[in-house]
């Protein structure tokens, strides 16, 4: 029997709820995408990737995918916390109370900050733009270049990401501690990087 990852389960509930409020419904791929963005913001906060609680692979299309998120989504659908309509999921009323309880837990405060900031990026960008910008993030752009799925954010591969985050921290030095600011600035920069690369080819 497949083990249900508690962090991935909470993230699914949180993201489905938050994105549902903002945009009516959400696809499974979008849950993977925003969970990955939240995980990157966790690293920006200089926390250990192992503390995030579950791993991601980069598909050959350059999209992030987590097996734990996949399993949690299926289980939450099966148990009636989420419902699926035309390939898109939304939370049911049964999800409200457990989500409230889990969000209030002290152990989830740090990850909630990252999840919230990831979702807030949709105020500035469409989901497609977030996806396009993230595709230029060092780990996903490497995954896209290699035609097979590979584990993301492994030790050796994170160095380039840390260089970007250091540049981001320097630029935002003495600015807000609010994670939404680096999230939006970084995604904008990745999008510009993506565009300048496309213009050059």
């Amino acid at each position: 029997m497949t083990r249900l990852n508690p962090d991935a389960t909470f993230d699914c509930l949180f993201l489905a709820n938050r994105l549902h409020i903002q945009r009516a419904s959400v696809s499974a791929q979008e849950i993977h995408l925003f969970a990955y963005l939240a995980c990157l913001l966790w690293l920006y906060r200089q926390r250990a990737v192992s503390d995030w609680g579950y791993a991601f692979v980069g598909t050959e299309l350059g999209a992030p995918f987590s097996r734990d998120i996949d399993v949690a989504l299926k289980e939450l659908l099966e148990r009636g916390y989420l419902r699926k309509v035309h390939d898109r999921v939304s939370p049911t009323e049964f999800a409200n109370q457990p989500l409230r309880d889990l969000t209030e837990l002290g152990m989830n405060q740090d990850r909630t900050e990252c999840l919230r900031a990831a979702c807030s990026s949709t105020a500035a960008f469409s989901v497609g733009m977030v996806s396009n910008a993230l595709a230029k993030e060092p780990e996903l752009s490497r995954a896209k270049a290699i035609p097979s799925s590979r584990l993301l954010l492994e030790d050796a591969a994170r160095s380039q990401l840390y260089v970007q985050f250091e540049a981001l921290r320097t630029a935002l030095h003495q600015r807000s501690n609010d994670l939404r600011l680096p999230a939006v600035v970084w995604l904008s920069a990745l999008y510009r990087l993506n565009k300048s690369a496309a213009d050059e080819t």
Partner: peptide, 21 residues
């Protein structure tokens, strides 16, 4: 242009950093 330059450019040219500033 490297990513650090682009990040600085975004901070100078866009509305979200402006609102905070």
């Amino acid at each position: 242009m490297n990513i650090a330059d682009i990040i600085n450019q975004v901070c100078e040219e866009t509305h979200v950093p402006m609102a905070h500033e």
